[in-house]
């Protein structure tokens, strides 16, 4: 949740900062940019306050011996299933922010172009363990999984 909040904050601060720089240096833009920036700031604050906790409440995942499940989204909820027998690759990625917080995202892809299952922001050790376990199971399955 902290990670989502930080990400929201960073995502909000960058355009705001850019807007402020323009506001400061380009005088002719001030008349319309001012209200726009205020509106943007309000939206960002509300967004950063509400969305991460919503996401945190909604997001779930599970990896059984048969399949990987993940639920994500806050406005549009999406529930994804990938049977282990159809998994092609398992990736664990850690962004800079995630590394700072000791988190990792595990991405499970199938042979389909759409629908990789993302297990977002697991604790680091758990992500490694899940990735290793899934890989081991996938290694036991024969065929090209299409």
């Amino acid at each position: 949740m902290l990670w989502w909040t930080l990400r929201e904050v960073i995502g909000a601060v960058v355009p705001l900062a850019a807007g402020l720089v323009v506001f400061a240096f380009v005088e002719s833009s001030r008349s319309w940019l001012g209200p726009l920036l205020i509106a943007l700031a309000i939206i960002d604050v509300v967004h950063a306050a509400v969305v991460p906790s919503l996401r945190y409440r909604v997001h779930r995942w599970e990896a059984t011996d048969d399949a990987v499940y993940a639920l994500s989204g806050w406005l549009v909820r999406e529930w994804r299933v990938a049977p282990l027998s159809r998994i092609q690759t398992v990736d664990a990625t850690r962004g800079p922010l995630q590394r700072l917080l000791g988190l990792a995202t595990v991405t499970v892809t199938t042979a389909s172009a759409s629908g990789p299952v993302e297990l977002v922001a697991l604790p680091d050790a758990e992500a490694t363990e899940v990735a290793a376990r899934l890989t081991a199971i996938v290694g036991r399955t024969a065929g090209d999984a299409t």
Partner: peptide
């Protein structure tokens, strides 16, 4: 109570672990 959330309710915790 929609299916998705109900389904999620008894999955393992930790999916959104961060703190």
């Amino acid at each position: 109570t929609e299916p998705v959330a109900a389904d999620a309710a008894h999955t393992d915790p930790g999916g959104a672990a961060g703190d």
